[in-house]
Design a protein around this nucleic acid. Sequence first.
DNA 1: CGACCATTTGATATGGATCAAGCGATGTGG
DNA 2: CCACATCGCTTGATCCATATCAAATGGTCG
Lengths: 230, 230
Amino acid sequence: MLTQTMIHRSSSRHPAGHHAHPVPAVNSHSFGTSIELMGAPMPFARNAEIYGENEPAEYLYKVVSGSIRTYKVLNDGRRQIGAFYLPGDVFGLEVGDEHTFSAEAIVNSKVLVIKRSALVNLAARDNETARKLWTMTAGELQRVQAHILLLIKTAQERVAGFLLEMSARVPMGNEIDLPMSRQDIADYLGLTIETVSRTLTQLENTAAIAVPSSRRIVLRNRAALNRLNA
Amino acid sequence: MLTQTMIHRSSSRHPAGHHAHPVPAVNSHSFGTSIELMGAPMPFARNAEIYGENEPAEYLYKVVSGSIRTYKVLNDGRRQIGAFYLPGDVFGLEVGDEHTFSAEAIVNSKVLVIKRSALVNLAARDNETARKLWTMTAGELQRVQAHILLLIKTAQERVAGFLLEMSARVPMGNEIDLPMSRQDIADYLGLTIETVSRTLTQLENTAAIAVPSSRRIVLRNRAALNRLNA
DNA sequence: CGACCATTTGATATGGATCAAGCGATGTGG
DNA sequence: CCACATCGCTTGATCCATATCAAATGGTCG
């Protein structure tokens, strides 16, 4: 079948000398409301790997700027993107000891790096923290469940759903500035780039959206998109 | 498109006078290792609804016998099954206040009903319990992530993956006794019954499996199935 | 035995994949 | 500053896996 991207391994691992984290002291940028155990924002270049599938999950991460994708590559090279993370989102949180997906920066990004063990230890004493961890995992669960519902739909429905999801996650009204390529979108939606592209032009032709430039989408008719969103 | 089952609403709600739970005292059946706050096993008839999407999540549940499906129905009637739960599995655990899926008994089943508030209160004091709740949610998350990977594959791969998953969850070696119909399997895998049926006969023809009766599957060649599992 | 329901099998249709150009923007070296 | 290579995206033509429509078979229960 081979629907998705054929594995295009990201070259530069740990561009900023990652795993040798010199986590510089404790600063505070309210992590939600109560958790403040994090290092300085760390920069990752476009396409740089933040962590790999099956690596020990020593850290979790909070996007400060830019955007991140997590993904898995199947044996035969198909890639499935699990999620996109935008500023404010936390990713890489695991209960087990290993990351279940890989994570890469989509564009040059800054990410807060948080030591998991510190958080887990704190959670053992502070049930506020414990609840927060649980809530974050549950939030992920909901997102993934919504993703499943996307994957059983038609191409139009998937793309419409994707656009609505993105627009809900960015504050700005009807204009979306996509950080990710068509290939990323395709691998997120379980489609090919060609189908994503064609579907966007269909939506444009029916005046549901406008595509002034390939990375910029204007939602022109949310009602129509919502109708597609089933 | 209309791939899945057209909504076939389950008739009998709360067959055993559910929501008026007469939760009879506290008995003990180690809930994992440390939690023991549950009522008596409650019977649900085949196809009976245990809870509906968007209902308040007052309880969570542990399967004692039988099997359960959770699902969502889209506007246009397509049904997506989110998971199958077998004896020992816990389902219906939410962090938020409402169930995000509906749940039905697939066959006559017995289910332990556990008051969520009791558990959540306990978790606020006992971090053993808090961790357990988190772990259970994380387990669900992993399962759903695996489900996503299934949904991007070919029909053969999905069916092979499903069979391997089921066989891993039932102790017995190579013989699986499926509690669910072809329609349930189809709605879980995002396929039609016809495709599920045809795919099973293909797998039978290649001697990967045997299908002595429609609900009984024998895994004859796990290597072949694993190969399909990508 | 007969009715009903689940499953299988067959014939055909179709949405999206695949194969293949073409096009526009961005960046690089001369 | 322009010519050209590169990359991401779009568009076109064709193919194929799975859906859809239809019918036959089989199993279960009254």
